[in-house]
Computed example of a mutant assay.
Amino acid sequence: MIEFIDNLTQLLAALTGCILSGMFYLRSRRQPYFLLCCFYACFGSSILYWLLYTILITDAPPLFYVADIGWISCYLFLFQLQYSLLDKEERTLRSRLPWLALVIITPLTVYFISIGDLLYNLIVGVLMCAMLWTAIRGLVWQKTCPNRGKLFVHLAIIGFIVLEYCLWLSSYPWVSETLTNPYFWFDFAVTASLLVLLPAVRKAVRT
Rank of each mutant, 00 (worst) to 15 (best):
S114Q: 00
S170V: 00
V110N: 05
L52H: 08
A41V: 02
C129Q: 08
F186A: 11
L56A: 09
Q82P: 05
K143N: 09
S84A: 13
L198K: 13
T134P: 03
Q82V: 07
S114N: 06
I123S: 03
L56W: 11
F43S: 04
H154K: 00
C42D: 02
Q31W: 08
Y172F: 15
W71Q: 06
Q82A: 10
A13N: 14
N121V: 08
R27S: 15
R137E: 09
Y49P: 03
T92C: 13
Y172T: 14
N121W: 07
E3R: 13
I5Y: 15
T109S: 07
G138S: 06
L194F: 06
T134A: 02
T54N: 15
L194I: 10
L167D: 02
G70M: 06
L195Q: 15
V124N: 10
F186C: 15
L167A: 12
G22I: 08
L12H: 12
L195Y: 12
V153H: 07
A204V: 00
F77W: 12
R96M: 04
I55E: 07
P199I: 00
S45Y: 09
L179C: 11
E177Q: 12
N7Q: 05
P107A: 13
L179T: 11
M1P: 01
D59C: 05
K150W: 04
P32C: 05
S84Y: 01
Y40G: 10
G116L: 01
C145M: 14
E3V: 04
I158T: 10
Q10I: 10
L35N: 03
Y183L: 05
L36T: 14
I136F: 02
R206V: 11
I136E: 02
L122K: 10
